[in-house]
């Protein structure tokens, strides 16, 4: 079981020159689920972000999130929350917290799971009231 707290433990480094492709694939799979990214990450991963599969997954996640939080949320260009400079960190974290609160009742989890419409509407109405 993974321990959320690392204090009081020592760490070992495991280095492997084999099985790298599997890790590259995992890294690629994680990117569409990023809800907050900074500009450097986008620039450094520019090539990966052009990948059709990654773009499709990004759009898929975004569509589902949009149904939950409604159009009032201020979206980044590619990811829900994007931050360009240090000064923007506070706002970005606040936006991430707001996004997480709006979706806390329905976890997107598996991509093929459709968000129940009624639940999505109720969340949308609630966020409008705020």
């Amino acid at each position: 079981m993974f321990q959320p707290s690392w204090r009081g433990t020592k760490r070992k480094l495991l280095v492997s020159f084999t099985g790298v492709e599997e890790k590259v694939d995992l890294y690629r799979q994680l990117i569409p689920y990023a809800w907050l990214v900074d500009e450097v990450f986008k620039v450094n991963n520019n090539k990966l972000l052009q990948n059709e599969q990654v773009r499709n997954s990004l759009q898929n996640v975004r569509r589902k999130l949009e149904r939950l939080v409604g159009p009032s949320f201020s979206w980044g260009k590619d990811f829900p929350v994007e931050v360009a400079a240090l000064a923007g960190i506070g706002q970005a974290v606040n936006d991430l917290v707001a996004l997480a609160k709006s979706t806390s009742e329905v976890s997107l989890g598996d991509q093929d799971i459709e968000v129940p419409k009624r639940k999505a509407e109720s969340i949308e109405k609630r966020s409008e009231k705020k």
């Binding site: 809800w35 990214v37 450097v40 989890g109």
Partner: peptide, 23 residues
């Protein structure tokens, strides 16, 4: 995040609970 940005490390945040079950 500030520590990462100051160091010039590109950073992305993913919420574990939002990942597909396989991940």
């Amino acid at each position: 995040l500030i520590r990462h940005l100051k160091a010039g490390i590109g950073v992305a945040v993913v919420i574990y609970d939002e990942l597909p079950s396989q991940l």
